[in-house]
Design a protein around this nucleic acid. Structure first.
Length: 396
DNA sequence: CACCGTCAAGTCGCA
DNA sequence: TGCGACTTGACGGTG
């Protein structure tokens, strides 16, 4: 929906879909023991804009309550991150007022969910406007005028080009606002190249009071193929563990393109969740691994045979290595045929014919692998093959 | 089906 | 002075 086609009916429909999706996500997190979750600011379309003046807080109060109870009941901690366009310290009063309204909207979501002040709203300091000192002072003035609810939940994060971690700590010292340290932002916008991640994390841990909950950090890795500051597709396990093993007790939010996949990976590698957890994870990755690298596929199968061990890190190393290997036609066809095995006896003659055509066209170079996988995904959805639908073969 | 532009927000920096 | 980049994911149009 855009500003041009805003209408009541569509707004209500989208809000209902988004709340239903949020509830599914929360359920996924509970099943996977993911205890930290960022709720999308887009949960309510135009949530803080004049374009949406519907009584959604009242109308969906029960849904919020129910979802919030699941969050609280599972010990999950959520956060909201207003976008880079929410600029509280703008010299333009309209911009600043819109920012305050946007913070109110984010705070309202947490209130409706019935969550406490350890569930945070994460913000950057804003713009510099050629005078960093004045810009910081203006942030503090505006912060003082925010509602007590917003202020109790607001935390500040160092950004990737304007306000570094020293700037943020400075403002924190003058306001008491807790600080989230972002390691990748500190790489592209360092306050002091001589100070390590760990030193900064120790420095900001003290900005969190008991009521704010455990200190929280953002962790991400550089995408080697993209510009400095761009997030990696996945969290590579070895550098993560090198970082993790030095840390004090903090909550770690991953910023990464593959989202839950990396969250589950890091959880599986930092505590023993039992060999069955690894087997379940392997089931989700296996056909992707097979199409990239059959040798890695065999190696992981062998690795998981010993039920006394918990070889999580070794498994993910092999997965990362395999996914970095280029797919060739032979391996892709082999993996696709494995998946086709699920439908061999279920498919109708027309479906079988379509599959055979898609595969032949791919082999002869006149169609993409995506079209082959698409045909398989349609079958998996139609026949409700959970094992495939919950796996990553169609999305990696 | 791949690719690109658009939308929304606000600021910065380069031409 | 003006415009592209930054960010996000969905969606629409083109080839």
């Amino acid at each position: 929906m855009t500003l041009k086609n805003v209408n009541e009916e569509l707004l209500f429909k989208l809000i209902e879909q988004n709340l239903a999706a949020l509830e599914v996500l929360v359920g996924y997190n509970i099943r996977n023991e993911i205890k930290l979750f960022r709720i999308s600011s887009d949960l309510i379309p135009f949530g803080s804009s004049w374009a949406n003046n519907l009584p959604w807080p009242e109308r969906y109060a029960e849904d919020f309550k129910r979802i919030g109870a699941k969050i609280r009941g599972s010990g999950m901690r959520v956060s909201l991150h207003p976008g880079q366009y929410t600029v509280l310290n703008s010299p333009d009063d309209t911009v600043a007022r819109n920012a305050a309204l946007d913070l109110d909207y984010h705070n309202l979501i947490l209130d409706l969910l019935g969550l406490g002040q350890e569930h945070k709203i994460i913000l950057h300091l804003g713009g510099v406007y050629n005078d960093k000192t004045a810009a910081k002072n203006r942030f503090i003035e505006r912060w003082l005028a925010l509602s007590p609810g917003v202020r109790s939940r607001l935390v500040l994060e160092n950004d990737d080009r304007l306000f570094n971690i020293s700037d943020v700590i400075d403002v924190s010292c003058r306001t008491g606002i807790p600080v989230v340290y972002d390691n990748l932002h500190n790489k592209t916008n360092p306050a002091d190249p001589g100070v390590s991640d760990l030193d900064w994390i120790r420095a900001v841990a003290g900005t969190w009071q008991t009521a704010d909950g455990k200190p929280k950090i953002h962790y991400s890795q550089q995408n080697p193929e993209k510009k400095p500051g761009a997030h990696s597709t996945t969290i590579y396990i070895d550098p993560f563990l090198d970082f993790y093993k030095t840390l004090p007790d903090v909550d770690i939010m991953l910023e990464v393109k593959d989202k839950n996949l990396s969250a589950v990976k890091c959880l599986n590698c930092t505590s023993n969740r039992g060999i069955s957890a690894l087997e379940a994870e392997w089931g989700r990755y296996k056909y992707s691994i097979l199409e990239h690298d059959p040798a890695a596929y065999q190696a992981i199968r062998t690795l998981l045979k010993d039920k006394e061990r918990y070889p999580a890190v070794e498994m993910y190393r092999l997965i990362e290595q395999a996914l970095a290997t280029r797919i060739n036609v032979g391996n892709a066809v082999n993996a696709a045929q494995h998946v086709w095995g699920y439908f061999k006896y279920k498919a109708e003659p027309a479906e079988k014919k379509r599959w055979e055509n898609a595969l032949q066209k791919y082999i002869s170079g006149s169609a993409t692998l995506a079209s082959v996988k698409n045909a398989l995904q349609k079958l998996a959805q139609k026949h409700e093959v959970d094992y495939l639908n919950n796996g990553y073969y169609f999305s990696l």
